[in-house]
Structure formats: structure tokens, C-alpha cells
């Protein structure tokens, strides 16, 4: 007895979905996740990877099947069926992608919100907004319009770090300890607030293991917050073409345990007069 095609299609579809889920969960395409928002990002990535795998393999399979199954045999010069369209099918493949895309959009909005991206940066708007030339450091959120993307702000125990991006290096300054360093050192579990600025051209601050990137644009004071989760040494990469040595504009972020971080601060802090 022949198995009805509907059942074969159903089984193939189920296998495809299972394979997509397996790829999403067990194939590791991303680097280590070392910050609090990286696992949130990875959740979104898994959903996108599952949907993408199913779609790509499904369509590839259908195209290859059609090429084999409906290929013209030798000496056959007949035409195919004169089917010009099918309204129900058209509605189906308009509605399903629309729903999927809307779902992904709303889901990624939720992810973005959890990563702190939807926080308004201009809440304290009593100060004049765009004093682009006079970017100050002290309390940027009260002084100037801030730009930025991801990062939950407003926590009390925040570690501020001023970052200057220039051709072709990052310079990190810890205002509270008056430390200046070519590498970023941060403790685990404590929110870090980077206040980034650039004086020459556009750079971008990217830590792949934190899933964080922010353009550093001359004339725009930019804030980026994150909380490191896992001790280690991760690359900082400039991700915006900034000149000939763009590829060499790299640094490190060293994530310490809180105790190690305190001793790093003590060791590195310049001697004070008092």
C-alpha cells in the first residue's frame, strides 16, 4: 500500500522542525557569553536560528524536489498545467510570514527592553539639550543630551568609566580612582557605565562576548552600560572604519572577581598626596 503524500509531508515537516530546534539548541555559533545581557541576546538568536533553519531547508528541499520531480524528460515538449494562481494559497503565504515577522518583531522588542535598550536617555530634560561642543564629564545625564543604546541605568552601585576612542586606540579613565589605562578592567556583578566619546572620527566599541556594540560619534556623548558575569579576558574591537589602522584598533576587557578588582584598583591607582 502506498503511504498517502499528506502523511509523508507531515512527517517531513515535523522532522524539519525538530532538526531546526536541534540546530538552534545544540549548534554553537556564538562566542562565549560573559555579560548579563548576553544570555538574553542568545535566547533571541536561538529563536531566529530555529525559524531560519526550518525556512531555508524547507525552501531548498522544495526547490530541489521540484527540479528532480518535474524535470522535463527527453523528447518531451509539452507544457505544464496552465495554473495561473490560487487566491487561498496567496492569502496563506501572505498571512503566515506576516504573523511570523510580527511575532519576531514583538519578541525582539521584548528582548531589547530586557537588555535596557528602550530606556529613554533624555529623562532629565531640564538642561539645554544639544550643547554638542561642550561635552562635560561630571554628570552627563544632567548636563547634555545623551546618546546610547543598550544598558540598564540608574543603579546606585555603578562603576563609571570614561572611554575616549581615537585613531587608533581606546583610553579608559576611572574618574573615581583617577586611573588611566589602555585596558578596561571591570568586576563581575557590578554595573559598569561607559561614557564614551571620540574626538577625531567615528569609532565603535564592540565586545563580542558581551554582545554589545556602540558607535562612538564625535560630538555625541554616548553612554553604554553592562554588567560582566564571567571572569576572563575578552577583546574590545573597533567596528567602524576609522582609518588605515582600523584593523589594529583593539584592546582588552579584563573581567575580575570583585576582590581581584579591588586589588587591581589599589595596585594601579596613582599615589595621592593626602
Amino acid at each position: 500500500m502506498r503511504i498517502p503524500p499528506a502523511i509523508i509531508t507531515l512527517v517531513l515537516g515535523m522532522m524539519l522542525v525538530l532538526f531546526g530546534l536541534w540546530v538552534a539548541n545544540d549548534v554553537s555559533l556564538l562566542p562565549e557569553s560573559a555579560s548579563l545581557n548576553a544570555p538574553v541576546y542568545d535566547e533571541l538568536f536561538k529563536v531566529l536560528l530555529a525559524i531560519g533553519t526550518v525556512l531555508l531547508l524547507g525552501i531548498t528541499g522544495i526547490v530541489i524536489y521540484s527540479l528532480v520531480r518535474f524535470r522535463r524528460r527527453q523528447g518531451d515538449s509539452l507544457d505544464g498545467e496552465p495554473i495561473e494562481g490560487n487566491l487561498a494559497l496567496e492569502l496563506f503565504w501572505t498571512a503566515v510570514p506576516a504573523v511570523v515577522v510580527l511575532f519576531i518583531g514583538i519578541y525582539s522588542y521584548d528582548i531589547y527592553d530586557r537588555m535596557g535598550g528602550m530606556q529613554s536617555l533624555s529623562m532629565h530634560d531640564h538642561a539645554p539639550r544639544e550643547q554638542l561642543a561642550s561635552v562635560r564629564h561630571a554628570e552627563p545625564s544632567d548636563q547634555d543630551r545623551l546618546w546610547g543604546g543598550i544598558g540598564i541605568r540608574g543603579s546606585a552601585d555603578v562603576l563609571p568609566v570614561e572611554v575616549t576612542a581615537l585613531q587608533f586606540a581606546f583610553i579608559f579613565h576611572y574618574p573615581e580612582q583617577n586611573i588611566t589605562s589602555g585596558e578596561l578592567h571591570v568586576p563581575t556583578g557590578r554595573p559598569v557605565e561607559l561614557r564614551l566619546r571620540a574626538n577625531d572620527v567615528i569609532h565603535a566599541f564592540w565586545v563580542p562576548q558581551f554582545r554589545l556594540k556602540q558607535d562612538v560619534i564625535p560630538g555625541q556623548q554616548t553612554v553604554l552600560s553592562f554588567t560582566a558575569r564571567k571572569p576572563g579576558d575578552y577583546p574590545i574591537v573597533c567596528a567602524e572604519l576609522c582609518g588605515p589602522y582600523h584593523g589594529g584598533m583593539r584592546s582588552h576587557v579584563v573581567v575580575h572577581n570583585p576582590d581581584d578588582f579591588s586589588s587591581w584598583l589599589e595596585k594601579t591607582a596613582p599615589p595621592t598626596l593626602s
Binding site: 521540484s66 527540479l67 524535470r71 495554473i83 503565504w93 501572505t94 506576516a98 515577522v101
Partner: peptide, 25 residues
């Protein structure tokens, strides 16, 4: 993301054009 919808329609229509045709490879 919504551009994927009209683009998807085009791709599904091309696949439907192939379906049950007599494809010269």
C-alpha cells in the same frame, strides 16, 4: 522585517511556478 512579506510572496510564487511544470534543466 515587513519587507520579508512581499518578498516572501514573490519567492513562494516562483516556487509555485516551478511546481508541476515541465522543467528544462
Amino acid at each position: 522585517a515587513f519587507i520579508a512579506v512581499p518578498t516572501g510572496i514573490k519567492f513562494f510564487n516562483w516556487i509555485a511556478t516551478l511546481w508541476q511544470g515541465r522543467l528544462a534543466l
